[in-house]
Design a protein around this nucleic acid. Structure first.
Lengths: 197, 197
DNA sequence: GATATTTCTTGACAAATGTCAAGCGGTTTT
DNA sequence: AAAACCGCTTGACATTTGTCAAGAAATATC
């Protein structure tokens, strides 16, 4: 339990900063989470399954991806401190169109959809927090769209450098390429053209 | 006032379906809106200004766009029944990176950011509704991202046909091209290749 | 209804990116 | 230590898309 509070503290701090949580809410919220340590390569969600959990990524790296033909397209990369779901699947409790995989050993805190609904029921004021958090993730996604619309690989990579580079220190370039929606070869050439910044 | 209720009725119906609004909340919410009839070509928001309003598009077509060099990139197209904001700017009340323009004569209902905050203050239960609505717009955006990651113009156009075509009946193809992140010429050739479906 | 303006299409060409294949270098495995 | 594996780079080439330009078609304006 003590461990749980420590692992969840960044999440709780963020929520309390938005608007202080009552003691009861904070306790209930904390209790519903289950801590899991998962190994690199573990699947958190398989495509076509319903995303029944939300995870707080206390430590590590995750990616979501889907297959097109024989290729894997990485749709998102998630870092320590992120709240992780497959949005369409979690919100509507319908089958996911993507899988979620651990890119490193991770520590995650898992909260089920059903438990979250119970929290909403008992503590309707929690909707305020999740509204704000959803808004934040929403416009981050908007920025990502902005990047993908950039004309060429150089523009995308420069935008990436200015806005995401810090997060990608430990990530294989092949996933970065997929994140930028370009081939690994194009990324490699772009980097050498720009002098490996 | 009667007009206002009629114009807002699809929005109110949607919200009431999520969870019935109290009479007071529904009245306050309705009262804060201002109806505006705007002509094709009117700007609702200019880049670099703060998006201080949310609009319910009761009738018509809007687009948001930003300039890259001497070109306009259409980022979104919004249809009758949509809630319209510039997300990053509205949520954080910071300057917008996009402009919003009427593609046709429109009827919009305008609600200011400040009035919305007052509603949240007086009626915290309204956070439930906006949480759900934000979630919905969030995963719609996710699907849009999915489309933009498709390999080539044919795949994008086919995905568009299956998922968006109904909405785009009255929209010049040049805006559709921008929506798909391809040039108008490529869209034209793609359509003729596929037999103008 | 004639004219002007805008949008769409088509062609020719250039540029960017993807694909396939080979090889390099580091890490892990046995 | 050798072998196997994985990610990265580089080259050659094919494919796709963008760009520029011209004309056709559609729409708006007077």
């Amino acid at each position: 339990m003590q461990d749980k509070i420590i692992l969840l503290s960044p999440l709780l701090a963020m929520l309390n900063k938005l608007q202080p949580l009552s003691k009861n809410l904070e306790d209930t919220f904390t209790n519903k989470f289950e801590i899991e340590e998962i190994k690199k390569g573990t699947m958190l969600l398989y495509e076509k399954n319903v995303c029944k959990n939300l995870w707080f990524l206390a430590n590590g790296l995750l990616r979501s991806y889907h297959n097109i033909g024989d290729k894997e397209i990485t749709s998102r990369i998630m870092f320590t401190g992120h709240i992780v779901i497959s949005p369409g699947s979690f919100f509507t409790q319908t089958p996911a169109t993507e899988s979620i995989e651990a890119l490193s050993d991770c520590v995650v805190a898992r909260l089920s959809f059903d438990d979250l609904q119970e929290i909403y029921k008992k503590y309707p004021e929690f909707n305020y927090h999740t509204r704000i958090v959803t808004e934040q993730y929403f416009y981050k996604q908007e920025q990502r769209l902005y990047m993908l619309r950039k004309h060429d690989a150089v523009a995308k990579y420069n935008y990436f450098l200015e806005n995401y580079a810090d997060y990608f220190k430990d990530i294989p370039l092949m996933y970065l390429a997929s994140f930028l929606n370009i081939s690994p070869e194009t990324l490699s050439r772009t980097r050498s053209k720009l002098g490996k910044k």
